[in-house]
């Protein structure tokens, strides 16, 4: 097991190294000028542009820039953002909590409500409840999250005035920590709902199928024959084994929630990594774009590694193969 784990970790590290080099080269191949800003008054002259390029090190050969970046990365330094004039590490650290809150909420909802509903559907296969949950999950799965976000913000936030349509917190809120926490919670509802409705639908369908497969296995019949209660059969014997395939889903969802919520963060002005990365792309802020990309790549690779390790830990057949 230890040897397997070491090999798998080295593979992950190598994958990350290749990803960093590819990301750097692709980012710098993007057409566009990192010094130009839309809506800026007088555009830069060529002489002015050259002066600023020298200041930000953009005039150096690409390989030299790559060497500088990799050297910095080894020291935990992702460089200084062109747009913000501040270290990229600090900027990412500032935005990570908002993304973690939104993504974490969605993950929790996804892997509680989604799994529960999926199991419920499987147990009640063919019932009216199964049919309308299937219809709802299909509809949810087919709904683009940015569209859903726009609709929820427009109806719940603007028309009904039930919840804030944008932002993470009201800067004018008075009161102590509790009031502030309640305010963040209010702002969280719509973006979390938008992402959850779509992701829960997928999890439900996945869990339903896995559970149906498991419930057909002979040991379930044995468990029932032994006189165990239906609750014990389903949750202790059935669900535990039907959970393995869903672990893969967790490994896939984690990076998507970090990087893939760009549209939802934009629609709801949620101050997370997604909106920061979107701004970096629009401004061709290479250091910030690279920092966000490396962070997401790391999360993808680590999530994949954790998923494999969890699989191997829970199912000996995986590590033996």
């Amino acid at each position: 097991m230890r040897h397997w784990l070491l090999r798998r970790t080295l593979q992950a590290a190598l994958t990350l190294a290749v990803a960093v080099v590819l990301l750097f080269l692709l980012t710098h191949l993007l057409p566009g000028d990192p010094l130009a800003r839309e809506g800026a008054g007088r555009p830069l002259t060529s002489v002015q542009r050259e002066a600023l390029q020298a200041r930000y090190g953009l005039d150096r050969p690409l390989l030299e820039q790559l060497g500088t970046f990799v050297g910095g990365l080894a020291r935990g330094d992702l460089g200084v953002s062109i747009e913000y004039g501040r270290p990229v590490v600090g900027l990412l650290a500032e935005r990570l909590p908002a993304t973690a809150l939104l993504g974490g909420t969605v993950l929790v909802l996804n892997f509680t409500v989604g799994l529960w509903l999926g199991v419920r559907q499987a147990v009640r296969k063919g019932s009216a409840e199964d049919r309308w949950l299937t219809t709802l999950s299909l509809a949810g799965y087919a709904t683009p999250s940015f569209w859903l976000g726009l609709v929820l913000a427009g109806i719940v936030g603007v028309r009904w005035h039930l919840l804030p349509p944008a932002g993470m917190r009201d800067p004018l809120i008075a009161g102590g920590t509790l009031a502030a926490a309640a305010d963040v919670l209010r702002h969280l509802v719509l973006p979390a709902l938008t992402l959850s409705l779509v992701s829960i639908a997928g999890t439900m369908r996945y869990q339903r199928n896995a559970m149906l497969e498991t419930l057909r296995l002979p040991y379930i019949v044995t468990a029932r024959a032994k006189g165990l209660s239906e609750r014990q059969v389903i949750w202790r014997h059935g669900w535990r084994n039907a959970l393995f395939p869903v672990l893969t889903l967790f490994g896939l969802w984690l990076p998507i929630l970090v990087s893939g919520s760009v549209f939802v963060e934009t629609v709801f002005a949620w101050p997370g990594l997604g909106s920061l990365a979107a701004a970096a792309v629009n401004g061709r802020d290479y250091p910030l774009l690279m920092g966000a990309s490396v962070l997401v790549a790391t999360i993808v690779i680590v999530a994949s590694l954790l998923s494999d390790v969890a699989y191997a830990f829970l199912d000996p057949r995986v590590r033996l193969s």
């Binding site: 005035h161 004018l172 008075a174 009161g175 009031a179 309640a182 305010d183 209010r186």
Partner: peptide, 11 residues
């Protein structure tokens, strides 16, 4: 959540 949003006098 819809009703809890106290704004201070400063607002």
């Amino acid at each position: 959540l819809a009703t809890v949003h106290p704004h201070g006098v400063a607002a």
